[in-house]
Amino acid sequence: MVTKSEVEALLRAAYAARQRGDLDEVMGFFGEGAHFSVSGSAAASPVPTVASGSAAICEVLRRLVSAFEFKEATIVSLVVDGAEAAVHWHVHVRSLATGEEAETDILDMLRIEDGRIVSLRQFADTALINRLLGR
């Protein structure tokens, strides 16, 4: 069983790696067979996605890291309840496709097992993401 402080440290390290754009380090925080999703309507935006397993998650995260530079990212709140966690973070992001910058909030719901992320469901402003991508 992972303690609350261990989960908090794990997530702070994972989010710091994402801010740096270090995909290899970010992937090291995911467990085998993990699930990752960005919620939203696929009919309204190409951003919502579901990926299972390391290879699929790595591909989705590679696209995100190559599309967006996090100029600044701050964890606003991090709530841990056993193996479940919620992270509310505020980001100043720059689109590498258009150069446009924006600030927004993201909410992630996570599940941790054996010291690794096994599920991450992200809620983000998909309309803003479309605009930043020039769509």
Rank of each mutant, 00 (worst) to 15 (best):
V2M: 15
T3W: 00
E6A: 02
V7M: 09
V7Q: 07
A9C: 00
L10I: 08
L10P: 10
L11I: 05
R12F: 04
Y15N: 14
A17L: 12
A17P: 12
Q19Y: 10
R20F: 00
G21I: 08
D22H: 07
L23H: 03
L23R: 03
L23V: 09
V26E: 14
V26I: 15
G28T: 09
F30P: 05
F30W: 10
E32A: 08
E32K: 15
E32Q: 15
E32M: 05
G33P: 15
A34W: 12
H35F: 10
H35N: 13
F36Y: 14
F36H: 04
F36Q: 01
V38C: 13
G40M: 07
G40Q: 01
S41T: 02
A42I: 00
A44P: 02
P46Q: 09
P46W: 06
T49K: 06
A51C: 00
S52K: 11
A55Y: 00
A55R: 06
A55M: 11
I57D: 00
I57R: 03
C58R: 15
E59L: 12
E59H: 05
V60D: 06
V60L: 07
L61G: 07
R63A: 11
L64C: 03
S66V: 08
A67H: 12
F68P: 08
K71I: 15
K71A: 12
E72C: 08
A73V: 10
A73G: 07
T74Y: 09
S77I: 12
L78P: 08
A85M: 13
A85Y: 15
V87P: 00
H88K: 11
W89E: 14
V91L: 11
V93M: 10
V93G: 05
V93K: 04
G99N: 03
E101V: 12
E101H: 04
A102W: 00
E103D: 08
E103K: 13
T104S: 10
I106L: 14
I106H: 07
L107M: 13
D108A: 14
L110V: 09
R111Q: 10
R111Y: 12
I112F: 04
I112E: 05
E113Y: 07
E113F: 02
R116L: 06
R116Y: 03
I117M: 15
V118L: 14
S119H: 10
R121Y: 03
T126K: 00
A127W: 04
L128A: 06
N130V: 02
N130G: 06
L132G: 02
L132S: 01
